[in-house]
Amino acid sequence: MIQIDNISKWYGQFRVLTDCSTHVTKGEVVVVCGPSGSGKSTLIKCVNGLEPFQQGDIIVNAISIGDPKTNLPQLRAHVGMVFQHFELFPHMSITQNLTIGQVKVLGRGKEEAQQRALKLLDRVGLSSQADKFPGQLSGGQQQRVALARALAMDPICMLFDEPTSALDPEMINEVLDVMVQLAQEGMTMMVVTHEMGFARKVADRVIFMDNGSIIEDAATEEFFGTPRSERAQIFLSKILSH
């Protein structure tokens, strides 16, 4: 489903990603973790071409991201993404946030889009907020709306860029619950997160990044059992001890 081949990326002289390679097969849940500044957010933004890269290639659903001929908007329409800061459209109601992509990008009818939106809002437990605006919702609620917005496009896979990092602790679970449910339904997911509980529960594999490189790429039990790299061991001991 997602095939990342030797990706390298520079910001000017500064190398942010170095020869990153991995893959996510259909139905797999892969968690990407690592200290801040390790390039994990950049890597996941490369997967749907939001961030350009200079070397290597990424193949999503048999389509090359690096190929300049690729119609990126068309591809992104089917790759859902959830951001750290939600990024709901603040000038649109919750329902409009969920219908705009369906109507303008997928060409669905207003009526159909509306129904789909309400169904998804119900699924994330926010039907009662349909007519409100993003600014009137809590962070956890906003992130669930953002999830619903991505799902409204019927994505073939989902990318998560630190979906719970900007949330108050008591709101983290309401978002994770939806993500766990999604994973259990067989959604292909690539998740940048520090939530090791989530990783243990649903991840098939865990990728550990540091300094723009993938240091460790292992099955979940293996990763939490005995990480091979010293760097990952230190990271784990720090993150799990609190």
């Binding site: 939001l50 908007p73 859902g80 800061h85 990024e87 990008v105 991505a150 496009m153």
Partner: peptide, 23 residues
């Protein structure tokens, strides 16, 4: 307008002009 808003528009498949005009 924060850059993340542009990302959000693009991430649901909007083209440059769609992102500009709707977001």
């Amino acid at each position: 307008v924060p850059r993340g808003q542009v990302f959000a528009g693009q991430a649901i498949g909007m083209t440059y002009w769609q992102t500009m005009s709707y977001v």
